[in-house]
Amino acid sequence: MAIEGAELVKAAAFIGAGLAMGLGAIGPGVGEGFVGGKACEAIGRKPEEAGLLTRTMLVAQAVSESTGIYSLVVALLLLFVV
């Protein structure tokens, strides 16, 4: 069975999309969880600053989330544009 070039590209794009999102999710997942953990620790020490600490936690997680969103964008590009 001869495999055409265009189809090989398509196949590589699909598996690439899967790996991009899959491996790209590891880092932000662990990082955001770590931020959440540290925020809980800080609130445990100083419960009266809970509002400020929660806001800071969310900002930090949003920054860390951006790499996950890059992965998502790359995966969607590989799926629908290539």
Partner: peptide, 10 residues
């Protein structure tokens, strides 16, 4: 693979 690896980090 996507769901498998993607589940490890979270």
């Amino acid at each position: 693979l996507c769901m498998g690896f993607g589940g490890i980090g979270p």
